[in-house]
């Protein structure tokens, strides 16, 4: 589904290489997790894949179902089925959450040549999905992420994911700033979306999220590269011993 080959990325404005040749293959139906110390390039990878400005790809490729992602505008990548759940969801004063959701859903449908969702149908779907994530009517009415708690913001990300039904979901530190109950709720939301045709890339610092969203494959990233790949047990090893052993082992 997602195929990343030798991806090398530097900052556009300074001579700083962040990713130094990342290789990653994620198959449909699988959940991959990336763990790694601060500054290893995990978030950069998620931004580059989703098309944020400020980065320059110096080498390598990234394809979603055989389509080159790196040549596309962010909205084209979204329409192609890529979704990024932000580590820090952006607050947008003046834009209602419902308006935002409906605009996004219909923009993607339009881009794919599908029919737009009617107001009534949209309302029905969004209410059902919101209820599953314990998002109340007030949160839907408020401007996007304005006055939301950390947990509410993350649940709102998952609601968007549920509404947009992407093929490939990237979760960038979705557990950061969440208490245990909020994390469970978010994890349940994600698990409900797991399916044969959908891939997940879960970026996290901590093993605890992976107790709730069970990964098929775990990667360790350090200094712009994936240095080790294994099963779920790799996450436990990190939890128990930190990164030092793995880093030493590779070095």
């Amino acid at each position: 589904m997602l195929s990343i080959k030798n991806l090398a990325v530097k900052l556009e404005d300074e001579d700083k290489q962040i990713l130094k040749g990342v290789d990653l293959e994620i198959e449909a139906g699988n959940v991959h997790a990336i763990m790694g110390p601060n500054g290893s390039g995990k978030s950069t990878l998620s931004y580059v894949l989703s098309g944020k400005g400020g980065y320059e790809v110096t080498d390598g490729s990234a394809e979603l179902e055989g389509v080159d992602l790196l040549d596309m505008e962010p909205e084209e990548r979204a329409a192609a089925g890529l979704f990024l759940a932000f580590q820090y969801p952006v607050e947008i004063p003046g834009v209602g959450n419902m308006t935002f959701l409906r605009t996004a859903v219909n923009a993607q449908r339009k881009a794919r040549g599908e029919e737009e969702m009617s107001a009534a149908e949209f309302l029905k779907v969004v209410r059902t999905r919101a209820k599953e994530l314990k998002i109340d009517a007030d949160m839907l009415k408020r401007p996007v992420n304005m006055g939301f708690s950390g947990g509410e913001k993350k649940r709102n990300e998952i609601l968007q994911m549920a509404m947009l039904e992407p093929k490939m979901c990237i979760l960038d530190e979705t557990d950061s700033g969440l208490d245990v109950d909020a994390m469970k709720l978010v994890a349940e939301g994600v698990n409900a979306l797991r399916s044969e045709g959908r891939g997940f890339l879960v970026i996290t610092h901590y093993q605890r999220l992976l107790d709730h969203i069970k990964p098929d494959v775990v990667h360790i990233m350090a200094d712009g590269r994936i240095i080790k790949t294994g099963g779920p047990e790799l996450a436990l090893e990190v939890e128990n011993n930190g990164y030092a052993d793995i880093l030493a082992e590779v070095a």
Binding site: S50, G51, K52, G53, E73, P74, E75, R77, A78, A79, F83, L84, F86, P89, V90, I92, P93, G94, V95, T99, F100, T103, A104, V105, A107, Q108, A111, P143, V144, Q160, L164
Partner: peptide, 21 residues
Amino acid sequence: FYLRSRGVSEGEATDLLTLAF
């Protein structure tokens, strides 16, 4: 970027943010 990453075109996102302003 947030709006575009959700599939909203640059033009439509500009309009939305302008009306919000």
